[in-house]
């Protein structure tokens, strides 16, 4: 597919090549390109397609002691078990919900911060804010979860201390044992950790906007905000669409570590994601078949969503 896209831009009048020559002739003309793509093709086959043979496990009663072809086949048993399990259904809901929250918050905050940073003319101040805001990206989730837990603790957590001392509430709020707060906590933690990092790509896109557009806008009497809305935002639209389509492919990955580390019995009905389900009912109790079935479900949904998003993105923004 990649080569096909490239051939369109081939300097030797591509239309002619396409129509008048046979497939083999066309291959011959592009042999350098094809040769160059072979290593990547091999890489893909080895790491993305060969492991697909493991999908067989989802249709078997897989026991690690036996070879993968000596297993007992059970048809769709595991899929039926998955979808008749109310916990799994709740987990799908949780995954989608947290993912959508993360996705929308992630985009909004990153673009907002990038827009603001872009307006700062003092380089030092800009760099400083940028660096400080993207530092948390390098922390591992284990540390972030620990921070969140300490901050929100009812025992001596700073958030609860503030709430009580500022008189917002008389009693401390048990953030981590009330289901209604959990998605918000996950969303906020994600924003805190990733917002700076996510701005980098937008800032890069903004810096490539032709300055003459801004000049022209000024001539037409546009102020700062007008320029932001009519020049900067349209300027990063393609970047935005590309990131959106790519992220939609990951929508069933709402994250795993944070939820896993912050969860407890009181809030498991909102905190458990598909990945945690796979871990608990697949890997942990040695039911690899069930885990694989859930994995297949995730892949199928992701691929479908990517195609839908790609279609909706319209002709000029298409990735595939």
């Amino acid at each position: 597919m990649k080569t096909a896209v490239k051939s369109k831009k081939h300097p030797k009048s591509p239309e002619e090549i396409k129509t008048n020559r046979s497939f083999v002739q066309r291959m011959g003309l592009q042999w350098q390109l094809i040769l160059m793509s072979i290593p990547f093709l091999i890489h893909r086959i080895i790491f993305s397609y060969v492991p697909l043979k493991g999908w067989l496990m989802a249709f078997q009663n897989y026991k690690p002691a036996k070879g993968w072809l000596d297993q007992e086949f059970v048809g769709l048993k595991w899929f039926k078990q998955l979808f008749s399990d109310t916990v799994f259904i709740t987990d799908i809901r949780n995954t989608f919900a947290m993912s959508l929250i993360n996705l929308s918050l992630g985009f909004i905050t990153a673009i907002a911060l990038a827009l603001l940073l872009n307006e700062i003319k003092n380089t030092f101040a800009k760099r400083f804010v940028q660096t400080v805001s993207y530092m948390p990206h390098f922390l591992s989730w284990v540390i972030v979860a620990g921070l969140v837990q300490n901050m929100l603790s009812t025992d001596s957590g700073i958030v609860n201390d503030l709430i009580v001392k500022l008189g917002i509430s008389d009693t401390k709020i048990p953030f981590l044992s009330e289901p209604k707060y959990f998605w918000g906590i996950v969303g906020a933690s994600n924003v805190w950790k990733e917002v700076g990092w996510n701005t980098i790509i937008y800032l890069a896109a903004m810096s490539s906007i032709d300055p003459s557009l801004y000049e022209a806008a000024s001539m037409d009497g546009a102020g700062r905000f007008m320029k932001m809305f009519h020049v900067t935002l349209p300027g990063i639209k393609t970047t935005f669409m590309m990131l959106l389509i790519m992220n939609i492919g990951h929508i069933l990955e709402a994250g795993f570590e944070l939820q896993y580390l912050l969860t407890n019995g009181l809030i498991s009905s909102v905190s458990e994601t598909i990945d945690i389900y796979v871990l608990k009912y697949g890997i942990q109790i040695g039911n690899y078949s069930l885990g694989t079935a859930a994995g297949i479900f995730k892949s199928v949904v992701s691929i479908t969503l990517v195609f839908i998003a790609n279609k909706l993105a319209g002709e000029e923004n298409k990735l595939i």
């Binding site: 019995g265 009181l266 009905s269 608990k280 109790i285 069930l290």
Partner: peptide
């Protein structure tokens, strides 16, 4: 094994 895990999960919640 599956039942045991489910039971534990129910209790924990």
């Amino acid at each position: 094994q599956f039942a045991n895990q489910k039971l534990t999960d129910l209790q924990v919640s």
